[in-house]
């Protein structure tokens, strides 16, 4: 599918926001799903790059992605101009299950794992009673979209150097909450695997239902190559992050 760049904004040193419009099944997007984007029109980059869908406007029929320029592919994406077209596949994978009943929810994001949680928070807000959002970044330079999250719930920021919000990792901010083990019924998270693992350890003995979004290098992005697997706790056949995931029940996967 060909979509167009409607807007491109530099959010911080190496983070870019792209608004995409043009024909795409916007109505079917679930928070946590991703698009797989072709890099260039020739064969210099033969693997697409997976990027999460961060926001969707179903009325205007457009979606937003946020990316960190870390290598050739994401750098190429950050250099697109308004009107350029992109070859995208999607929406791919399974997103976050959205519960239908009220209950206290904690959303934890880390770094470039934060964007898909914005779409999730927007979808959850009308349903849940209490939405606590905890976002971790390296430093002030690294922070983005704080204003967009602000109206969606009770937002706490943690930075490693303390330049914004609390100083330290998100897990430290969680443990600082009195009775944190009993405070929430649902937990949703996306970010570096080390962060997901630490969070899982904090809650794995509790009744909290948790969902995590995982990352792995991908080739096909559709479930055909078995390049992107993660191992499941019950040692059954490995699960494909691009197809069965990227969102998993945290009790199901080994982190």
């Amino acid at each position: 599918m060909r979509v167009n760049v409607a807007k491109i904004t530099n959010l911080s040193a190496d983070i870019w926001e792209l608004v995409l419009n043009g024909p795409f099944p916007y109505d079917s997007i679930q928070a946590g799903q991703f698009v797989n984007i072709r890099i260039g029109e020739n064969y210099d980059h033969i693997l697409r790059r997976p990027i999460s869908i961060a926001a969707v406007d179903r009325i205007k029929q457009r979606m937003t992605i946020v990316l960190r320029a870390v290598g050739a592919g994401t750098k190429w994406l950050s250099e697109r101009r308004v009107g350029d077209s992109l070859d995208v596949l999607g929406p791919l994978g399974h997103g976050f299950p959205i519960q239908s009943t009220a209950g206290a929810v904690l959303i934890v994001g880390g770094g470039i794992g934060v964007p898909p949680l914005y779409l999730l928070a927007k979808e959850l807000q009308p349903i849940v009673g209490q939405l606590d959002i905890l976002l971790g970044f390296r430093d002030q330079q690294d922070c983005f979209w704080l204003d967009k999250f602000a109206p969606l719930g009770n937002v706490t920021i943690a930075t490693e150097d303390g330049s914004v919000g609390k100083k330290g990792y998100v897990t430290e901010a969680i443990v600082a909450e009195p009775y944190y083990e009993k405070k929430w019924q649902y937990l949703y998270s996306c970010g570096p695997t080390s962060m997901l693992r630490a969070i899982k350890e904090l809650f794995v003995e509790t009744q909290v239902k948790g969902y995590v979004s995982l990352e792995e290098r991908m080739a096909c992005g559709v479930g055909a190559c078995y390049g992107c697997v993660c191992s499941s706790e019950n040692k059954q056949a490995a699960k494909r992050i691009c197809k069965e995931g990227p969102v998993f029940d945290w009790r199901e996967v080994t982190l």
Binding site: L47, R217, Y226, G227, V229, C230, A237
Partner: peptide
């Protein structure tokens, strides 16, 4: 028998193509 295949990363893009070490994972 089922083969689990190799640990990840199993794929990476290189100039001119890609490398894979899926390890013939199959059920």
């Amino acid at each position: 028998e089922p083969w689990l295949g190799n640990a990840t990363p199993r794929v990476t893009e290189v100039r001119g193509g890609m490398l894979n070490a899926i390890g013939l994972a199959n059920p």
